[in-house]
Design a protein around this nucleic acid. Structure first.
Lengths: 197, 197, 197, 197
DNA sequence: GATGAATGAGCCTTCATTCAT
DNA sequence: AATGAATGAAGGCTCATTCAT
């Protein structure tokens, strides 16, 4: 019985990922500029110089964090329900899943928001990610309009009204309990004449 | 008749404000850590040492920027219409004014968002500012519920659904044209059965 | 009686020159790459950071050394005697003055030779300096040919034969006593038939 | 008949020499301090660590370059013609061969000149090499004096006047065409009265 | 008030060298 | 022999901050 084979490449990837993950934590917590390479090395129990075997520069490390922790795909998955399921049933699920995703990816969220304020490349990345999410959900809503469930309207906007409050809620410490009200407001509106309960 | 008197104190205030305003620009553009005191001094055409005649430290300068450029008051003004005016008439105005305010205060917005990701004190400030705004608008909406115009609902959430998409729209390059759809969606909802002519 | 006035600009220049001079010493002794900014600062009794108030970078410092210690002008002065003085009388003086100049500027010589092996810009500078010197002396020799003192010949080459051995003599530890033989050989040649005792 | 045997020792020598030759190139081009072991390894297509199987340290590598590429012997061969051949016939050959040798060994020349400015041991090596060359040629010239071809004079100096301008010519981009003038000047002198038809 | 020289801590990065595999 | 991960000591450079003038 031989020991489980771990290839050199795997070891390399392993350490590299360890560094990236630790970098994400540090960058989110202290900010990119305030997190030092020494911090990172210590967090990983290695010498500072080693970081430069894996990344060309601190900025390259930052980009690698984005490469590894970007979650555009997960976001699209979460925001695109089956077209034949009714919105009344599905939207609450979507909003909750979205919220949970943001909780899970909080470090990344905080990091990208911070850096996108300053770095035009990252700003575009973040904008694209947001807009892609919005348009994904809008596509589903449009399908529900076509299916005759929802009235004709600007579905991109309704997608924004579902997703953006969730993001800000997360960042400004609002409670999860409010998520269902969001869906309700959006579906039913707040005008009395259109009311039903 | 003597020349208009400019007191020593006014001169002091003038220069101080000049420094603060330049600091806001720099902090918003490059980020607090990447903006140097020398940058600031150059932007104002003075020597670096002079900054320390007006502020105890760079951090003190940052706080002074918040002191001078915080716009909680303007936000409350914008988000609190007269209770007796109908939402159907007022909300579009509110959303537009809010959007315009964000445009006018863009530098400050970007700065506080960035710094609040990292600095707990500023995070609380930013959270409070957001929540105060939300609650101000919620108070108006509650008044309209009481007035019988709107149906009973969680007005804090509807306030979020009006304001948060506006913020994110601003930051991710959405167009102003979409503002009216926001109000419409919120008032009428998107359900077909709740009909809207 | 007031104290002697020393302007701020003079103080600046003074310190700047002190740094440049110390840098020349260090660069000549240890080589540019082996001389550290800390070395330099210590040699001048200041903090390392101060160097960067006077020079943008270590390379800028190197260039400043060249600016200040280049001696093309002195070299031309030394190598250009009055056209009407006979070579037989003047060349030994020239060679000695040239040798003395090289002794006085030894640090600079060693530095530029070393750096020109590696840095194309400096190589050109050094080449130009050499060639200018050669051509200056060649011009004088040509005047002596025209004056009928010397035979018609390639005066650039004879200028090289006077100056280059002096340089190498300096660098490889030859003795000053040999300088007069150089002049003699050049004037008289070494062929017996042209000999004169 | 077995295939040609290549001993382990030969393989070792082969790789060692490959490393040394690549090191010479790098040291000449970028300078010892600016050439990294990694540069060297890459140039040879091996891992950085391997260099230390062949050399104890970077300095040992430098010394090995001198061991392998020193050309004192070639220089002596080039600078020592048969004593019975007349200088008038031989010197131009010598100067050309010497020039060609310097062209062939340019990398080494540039390297040793550079390093000798800084490293006393190498300086001595370089000085010795120069002086040995000078004395070798001087010995031949002395033989020609004894043979009655040349007048009695300081032959070390005339050897310098033949060799040093050639070196500097090489380094400062002079043309080969000037070599014959050197010999002519030295043989005949430049004084008109010593006439030469 | 205003200047700018001076400090000193600390950061990113490089690199010769070692060593387990 | 060969690899490349890992180390650790510097080195160049930046910058908030102080202080004499």
């Amino acid at each position: 019985m031989s020991a489980p084979e771990i290839s050199r490449k795997d070891l390399h990837e392993g350490r590299r990922n360890q560094l990236i993950d630790a970098a994400l934590s540090l960058f989110a917590e202290k900010g990119y500029e305030n997190a030092t390479i020494k911090d990172l090395a210590e967090a990983c129990g290695v010498a500072a110089g080693l970081v430069y075997h894996y990344f060309e520069s601190k900025e390259d490390l930052l980009l690698s964090v984005f490469e590894r922790h970007g979650f555009a795909a997960e976001m699209e998955r979460v925001l695109l329900p089956a077209f034949d399921r009714p919105a009344s049933e599905v939207l609450l699920e979507v909003v909750h899943s979205y919220y949970d995703l943001l909780v899970e990816r909080e470090s990344f969220m905080r990091m990208i928001i911070r850096e996108s304020m300053t770095n035009p490349q990252l700003e575009e990345r973040w904008t694209t990610m947001c807009n892609t999410g919005v348009q994904t959900l809008a596509r589903y809503l449009a399908a529900r309009v076509a299916a005759g469930e929802l009235r004709a309207h600007d579905t991109e906007i309704s997608a924004r009204m579902l997703t953006h409050p969730v993001v800000v809620l997360r960042l400004t410490g609002g409670s999860v309990a409010q998520l269902s009200s969001i869906v309700d407001c959006l579906l039913e509106g707040i005008n009395k004449k259109s009311g039903q309960g």
